[in-house]
Nucleic acid binder design. Sequence first.
DNA 1: TCATTCTGGATTGTTCAACAAAACTGGGCG
DNA 2: CGCCCAGTTTTGTTGAACAATCCAGAATGA
Lengths: 222, 222
Amino acid sequence: MTDPNPAGLAEDTAARLRAQVIAGHLRPGQRLSETRLAADLSVSRNTLREVFRLLTREGLLTHAPNRGVSVAVPSMAGVLDIYRVRRLIEVPALAQAWPRHAAVLRMAECVAQARIAREAGDWRGVGSANMSFHAAIVALTDSPRLTAFFAQAMAELRLAFGLLDSPEQLHAPFLQENGAILELVQQSDMDAAAARLADYLDRSERVVMTAFARLENGVTPG
Amino acid sequence: MTDPNPAGLAEDTAARLRAQVIAGHLRPGQRLSETRLAADLSVSRNTLREVFRLLTREGLLTHAPNRGVSVAVPSMAGVLDIYRVRRLIEVPALAQAWPRHAAVLRMAECVAQARIAREAGDWRGVGSANMSFHAAIVALTDSPRLTAFFAQAMAELRLAFGLLDSPEQLHAPFLQENGAILELVQQSDMDAAAARLADYLDRSERVVMTAFARLENGVTPG
DNA sequence: TCATTCTGGATTGTTCAACAAAACTGGGCG
DNA sequence: CGCCCAGTTTTGTTGAACAATCCAGAATGA
């Protein structure tokens, strides 16, 4: 009961390492020594290599032949691509959704949890709830492939967020926006909800891109 | 020059095994013994396990804990999901495409190659060209994530096609359709091209689903 | 002084051997 | 006929080993 699916050591370790990467414990660009990290995670080097394959395929790590793997360093092109994917998937998902789908409940829970986290000043929690909210939107499609693909893209996006200073500025303005979208969905006005989501994505993208540009200008001098 | 990217033994082996699965050399549901397959592919068992992780994540293999991996057995729900993904990605890709994109050339090449293959009676070649044609459509977006995701879905779809008898019936009616879409694109009439593509997908889905239903009824009696 | 070459050490890529744990197989028994 | 139980096979994981490659710093030469 405590462990519904043992799922094997490799996937478990992959989840742990993924969490560390997303949480920013490992900085983008940092090389990951196989022996060292294997010791840190208490797994064998072979098992760690299986984990590396998975996370590399997910886009969180990059692999250079004979030079090992490093944490992927997000690029503006990558962020742009991810937002295009988000628009392409999320907006139709919401527009064609069934108003009484189970995932609507999850959306509501995410909005509530985001508010609780904001009250507590837990900005990382706010970010997590926001991500879950949009994951729930995609879950409206009942498509396992879309859901998995979207989760992957969101993990990459979180990695990019970790680069920016003050992630609170990124999520705070959009808290009420999520609530508004949820209300429109609950009123079965899917077209309005989708339009509002599209606007959300445009603005969010702009905020992230400007923050990113400022970062790159600051890091790479003239 | 002969080998532009060594890319490592694992990914090379993954490509080989992927080709074997797609080509139908390994039947869906068949269990893959690690030691045996490792010997067949002339790689170590550890390397093969890395390959298994990759292809499992791609959806071509399934992994049961302590029971090894087997070739994934396509389901009607899976095919349905894949066609939804195709519609969601391909139609907007075509609708918003730049008429002079480089991928349009690849589309033309695929149409030509499909015709050549049909003349030669090479139906598997026709199928490959058809797949490449739609991959080129997605390439119109210049989105690496969409392209990779779509390629994965198409690989799964090919696995499902392998189940059906007489795959020629699946591709033959759509050869001219591809040509018509290409002409509309070359005339910069993207809306018409997208509409025709949507119609193509609807009809193709129906053909595949009926073939699939006939198969399942024949296999599972009563 | 500066650029080049060389060399030693560290890291990756891959294989092999070993073992615990779980699943499958076949026979024995109620 | 169904259940249990030992033996065998297969998976899951680890550790060690070795070649190939890369990296840093010393040695060399202009």
